[in-house]
């Protein structure tokens, strides 16, 4: 039995392919028929872009029965892909030459590319986050990090009195204090590079062979905190990435809309048919 998700994606892709094929076919048919085909494709592209932007409005109106956000995102993605085809039909597969037009096209492509990248990233990262575990609300991560750091420091300090040795405390000071203090290895976590943590674990293992059982117990507890801190950094890094891509997608969208509005005005104000006063 096919899973509904697979079925939905398959039908979505098929529908998209059909829509794009229809678009290109229709465009081809209309080229010799329509005097200014760019007006039609342009308005259509604008309508599609406004629809895509309307998703934001839907998110701001959760109390109205405007359809589920899930449906909207599906439409947002597929209509977004379709808009790419429409964009190329509108520009005639040529890169615009003027500074303004090139800026407009670049903005569009940047918004589209960030959207596609964000969507792909949104599909990949949750699995990774879930597989890693140690779920934490993003807003609470600093507090948790601070608590971990305080716990680790307290543990290291207490070990001096309890074990009458500064071995663990020294190790903490040299190798772990910095690690606990701030978020670490942000990019490496994104790339799923685990070497920094393995390096710390190797250092702990190295120290471990020279310790007595009491110290070993403290070190073991510290190692647990290290693992928690590492997972926390992982959560922070990936959750942040899931939020930051929108820092590109959304602001550029509004820039795009502003330039689009000017584009529409320019197209009509500077068209050959403008009558003098």
């Amino acid at each position: 039995m096919m899973r509904t998700t697979v079925k939905r994606r398959l039908s979505g892709v098929l529908l998209l392919v059909a829509a794009v094929a229809t678009l290109f076919w229709g465009h081809r048919q209309l080229v010799p028929v329509m005097r200014h085909l760019a007006y039609l494709s342009g308005w259509l592209l604008l309508a599609v872009c406004l629809f895509l932007t309307a998703y934001n409005a839907r998110k701001k109106l959760p109390f109205l029965p405007l359809g589920s956000s899930r449906t909207w995102l599906q439409l947002h993605a597929y209509v977004g892909y379709f808009s790419l085809a429409l964009f190329f039909a509108h520009t005639g597969w040529r890169w615009p030459t003027g500074v303004f037009e090139a800026a407009l096209a670049s903005l569009y492509l940047a918004v589209a590319a960030s959207g596609v990248a964000g969507l792909v990233w949104s599909r990949i990262v949750p699995r990774r986050l879930t597989a890693r575990g140690c779920e934490a609300l993003y807003e609470r991560i600093p507090a948790i990090r601070r608590k971990l750091a305080e716990d680790a420091e307290a543990m290291a300090l207490a070990s001096v009195a309890a074990t009458r040795s500064t071995a663990v405390a020294d190790f903490y000071k040299v190798h772990l204090a910095g690690f606990f203090r701030r978020p670490m290895n942000g990019w490496r976590h994104l790339a799923e590079v685990r070497s920094p943590r393995m390096r710390i674990e190797a250092r702990i293992a190295d120290l471990d062979r020279f310790l007595d059982p009491d110290q070993r117990k403290v070190l073991k507890e510290l190692a647990v905190l290290v693992a928690q801190k590492d997972s926390l950094d992982y959560q922070r890094s990936l959750q942040l990435s899931l939020k930051l891509w929108l820092f590109v997608h959304i602001p550029l969208t509004y820039s795009l809309l502003i330039l689009t509005a000017l584009h529409v005005v320019l197209v009509f104000a500077f068209s050959g048919g403008t009558e003098a006063n």
């Binding site: 028929v33 200014h36 039609l40 009558e275």
Partner: peptide, 20 residues
Amino acid sequence: AQLALRSHPAPFGKDQFAKV
């Protein structure tokens, strides 16, 4: 913007979708 409204074909007119 004003001139755009007075252009031909007009932004909200049917002429812009005229056939060749």
